[in-house]
Measured scan of single mutants.
Amino acid sequence: GLTEEQKQEIREAFDLFDTDGSGTIDAKELKVAMRALGFEPKKEEIKKMISEIDKDGSGTIDFEEFLTMMTA
């Protein structure tokens, strides 16, 4: 499992990506986040990433899903 410290770091990354503070990361926010990390993702790639992570089919990534992605 994760230490509380690791969870906190992932939470901070999540909050950075969640620019509108909605508690979820949408495609637009993910794209901005990827760019910040030096990637140039295409729209299809973003969609694919979200569909792989987005277990509940909401079209957005919540913290639990993000946590799973970061620790996979």
Rank of each mutant, 00 (worst) to 15 (best):
M69P: 00
E65F: 09
F39S: 02
T71Y: 06
R35D: 09
L2D: 02
E52T: 10
K43D: 15
D18M: 05
E5I: 12
T19V: 07
A13Y: 11
F63L: 04
K31V: 15
S51R: 06
T19Q: 08
K48C: 15
E4H: 08
T60W: 05
T71F: 07
R11G: 01
A33L: 15
A72M: 13
D20A: 03
K43L: 15
K7V: 13
S22H: 03
M69V: 10
L2V: 07
T71P: 02
F63C: 01
E12S: 09
E40P: 03
D18F: 06
D26W: 05
V32E: 15
K42Q: 11
F17E: 00
E29M: 13
T68S: 12
L16E: 06
T19W: 10
T68F: 10
F14L: 01
L2E: 03
D56K: 08
G38W: 01
L67M: 07
Q6T: 06
Q8W: 07
G57Q: 10
A27W: 12
F17D: 01
E52I: 14
K42R: 10
T3C: 09
R35H: 09
E4K: 11
K48G: 05
L30T: 01
D56N: 11
I61H: 00
T71G: 08
M69T: 03
M70Y: 07
F39K: 04
D56P: 04
F14R: 00
T60D: 11
I46Y: 05
K31Q: 12
A27S: 09
G21C: 11
E4M: 08
E40R: 06
L67G: 00
E12P: 01
E52W: 15
T68Q: 15
A33T: 03
P41M: 15
K28Y: 09
I50Y: 04
A36S: 12
G38K: 01
K7T: 11
G23E: 02
D62W: 04
T19A: 10
V32Y: 13
Q8C: 12
M69H: 06
S51Y: 04
A27H: 06
M70L: 13
T68C: 11
E29C: 14
D26G: 07
E40Q: 10
I25A: 00
F39R: 05
A27R: 07
E44F: 02
A36V: 11
T19C: 11
E52M: 14
T24S: 11
A13C: 15
Q8M: 11
T3M: 05
E29R: 10
F14D: 00
E65I: 07
L67N: 01
E12W: 15
M34S: 02
G38T: 01
I25P: 00
Q8R: 13
L16I: 09
A36F: 12
I53Y: 15
L16H: 07
F66A: 00
K31W: 15
F14Q: 01
I53L: 13
E4A: 09
S51N: 10
I10N: 01
M34I: 07
E40M: 13
G21M: 05
L2K: 04
T24A: 07
F14V: 00
G1P: 08
E40A: 09
E40T: 11
S51E: 14
A72I: 11
E64P: 05
I46T: 04
G57E: 12
K43N: 15
I25K: 00
M69F: 15
I61G: 00
T3A: 05
I53W: 15
D15R: 08
Q8K: 09
S58P: 03
G59R: 08
L67F: 06
G38N: 04
E5C: 14
K31G: 11
P41K: 06
G21K: 12
L2S: 04
P41S: 07
L30V: 08
K28Q: 11
G1I: 13
A27N: 04
I53R: 04
D20R: 04
E44V: 07
M49L: 13
D62Y: 07
D62L: 05
D26C: 09
T71N: 05
L67D: 00
T68R: 09
K48L: 06
S58K: 12
E40I: 09
K28M: 12
E52Y: 14
I25V: 03
Q6Y: 12
M70P: 01
S58F: 07
S51L: 05
S22W: 03
I46Q: 02
E4S: 10
M49A: 05
D62I: 04
K28P: 04
K43G: 14
E12T: 14
S58M: 07
Q6F: 13
T71Q: 12
D54K: 12
F17M: 10
E65H: 07
S58C: 06
A13S: 05
L2C: 11
E65L: 11
M34A: 02
F17V: 15
M34R: 00
K47A: 12
K47Q: 14
E29W: 11
K7E: 06
K43C: 14
S51C: 10
I46H: 03
M34K: 00
L16S: 09
D56G: 06
F63T: 00
M49N: 03
R11Q: 05
L67W: 10
M49C: 13
A33V: 15
K47S: 13
A36W: 13
D20Y: 04
G21N: 07
V32C: 15
M70C: 14
E29D: 15
E4F: 10
M49V: 07
A72T: 09
L30C: 05
G38V: 01
V32R: 15
P41W: 10
D54T: 09
D18P: 01
E5Q: 13
E65M: 14
G59P: 04
D26T: 11
A33N: 01
T24R: 11
A33S: 01
I50C: 06
G23K: 03
V32Q: 15
K42S: 15
G23L: 02
S51A: 12
V32D: 15
Q6H: 10
K55H: 08
I50N: 02
M34D: 01
A36P: 00
M70A: 04
K31A: 13
I53G: 05
G38A: 01
T68I: 12
M49S: 04
D15K: 05
D18R: 04
T19P: 05
G59N: 05
K31L: 15
E44L: 07
E9A: 13
D56I: 07
E64F: 10
A72K: 12
E65Y: 08
G21D: 06
S51M: 05
M34G: 01
F39G: 03
Q6C: 14
E12V: 10
F63P: 01
T68M: 13
I10K: 01
K55Y: 05
E40D: 15
K47I: 14
R11A: 03
I50W: 06
Q6I: 08
I46K: 02
G23D: 02
T3V: 02
D62F: 04
E64V: 05
L16Q: 08
E44H: 10
K55E: 05
D18H: 02
G1C: 14
K48Q: 10
I50Q: 03
T24V: 07
P41I: 14
F39I: 10
S58Y: 08
F17G: 12
A13M: 14
K47Y: 06
V32G: 15
A36G: 05
G59K: 09
S58N: 13
M49T: 03
T60G: 06
E5N: 09
I53A: 12
K31I: 15
T60L: 09
D18Q: 03
A36M: 13
A27Q: 05
F66G: 00
I50L: 15
T71V: 12
G57T: 05
E65D: 09
T19N: 06
M49F: 04
A36T: 07
G21S: 07
A33R: 02
E45M: 13
L67Q: 02
D54M: 12
K31M: 15
R35V: 11
K48P: 02
E5M: 11
F14E: 00
E9P: 05
E40W: 09
